[in-house]
Simulated assay, not measured.
Amino acid sequence: MGKQHLHKGWNEIKTNDSWAIFKIMGEFVNGFEKMSRIGPCVSIFGSARTQAGDKYYDLAQKIAYKIVNHGYGVITGGGPGIMEAGNKGAHLGGGTSVGLNIDLPFEQHDNPYIDSDKNLNFDYFFVRKVMFVKYAQGFVVMPGGFGTMDELFEAITLIQTKKIDKFPIILVGSEFWEGLFEWVRTTLMEAHGNISPQDMDLVKIVDTEDEVLEILDSFYRESNLSPNF
C-alpha cells in the first residue's frame, strides 16, 4: 500500500461518509424485508473458532435441533464454529435456519447449513446487530470471544435500559460463564454499585439443551405468548 493511501484528508473522509449513508440504508432495508418474513427465532451466539467435535459445538447443534422442534427458528452469525453448529442443528431438525454473515479478514465464511433464501451478508456490524436483536425472541450464548461478549452485553444493556422488550438471555456452559458473572456480581454490583441486583436476573446460566428449552418455553408460557405468534 502506497503512502498516499495511509492518511486520508478530512474532505475525503467527509465525502466517503456521506456516500456510506446509502450503503447503510440499503443494508437496513434489505435486512428488514428479508427478516420480517422469517417468523419467530432464537439467536445463537458463540465462537467462530470452535471446532466440530468440541463439546460446545455438539451442544450448540443439539440446542438448535430442539429449538426448531419447539416452534422457533434459529438465527446465527452465519459463519463457522458455533454458528455452523447452530445452523446445522436447525437444518437437521427441519426448521428455519438463518445466517447473518459479515465480511471479516480471517475466520468468517458462510456455513453450508443456512437456508438458501435466508442467508444475509453485511458490511456493517451495527446493522447486523440490529437484525439479531429485532428479530429474536431469545438469545442463547455459547462460549466465545470478543464478538460474543459484544453481542451479549449489548442485549443485556438494551433490556436493562428498556430500549427493547425483555426476552430470555441464556448462557450455556457454567464453567465458562460463572467466573465472569461472579466478577459482575462482586465488582460491578456489590463493590461499586454500577448495576442493580435485579440486573443479575437478566441472564440465566445453564449446561444442557433441556434447560435452554425449559427457560424459553416457560418464559413464553408466563408471558401468554407462543413461539408461533
Rank of each mutant, 00 (worst) to 15 (best):
I205Q: 15
F122H: 00
T148L: 04
V140M: 06
Y124T: 01
A136N: 13
Y57T: 04
Q51H: 08
K55M: 11
I114P: 01
T76A: 11
F176A: 12
H5P: 01
M1V: 12
F146W: 14
K129G: 03
D123Q: 06
C41W: 07
G93Y: 05
A64W: 02
F229R: 13
V127S: 03
E175H: 13
F22C: 04
F132Y: 11
D110C: 08
R37T: 15
N87K: 07
E107M: 11
Y57P: 05
S223Q: 15
Q108C: 03
H91E: 11
G89H: 00
D207G: 03
E12S: 12
N87W: 01
I215R: 10
G95L: 04
M149D: 08
V127Y: 06
Q51R: 14
K34W: 02
I205L: 08
Q198E: 10
D117Y: 02
R128G: 00
D110L: 10
D150R: 11
K3I: 15
L225D: 04
F167I: 15
S116G: 04
E209V: 02
F45H: 07
H192Y: 10
V133A: 08
S43T: 15
Y56E: 04
F181Y: 15
L120N: 14
I169Q: 05
V141T: 05
Q137W: 12
L158F: 02
G31H: 06
K129L: 06
F122M: 10
N30T: 15
R49P: 09
L225H: 09
G93A: 08
D123S: 11
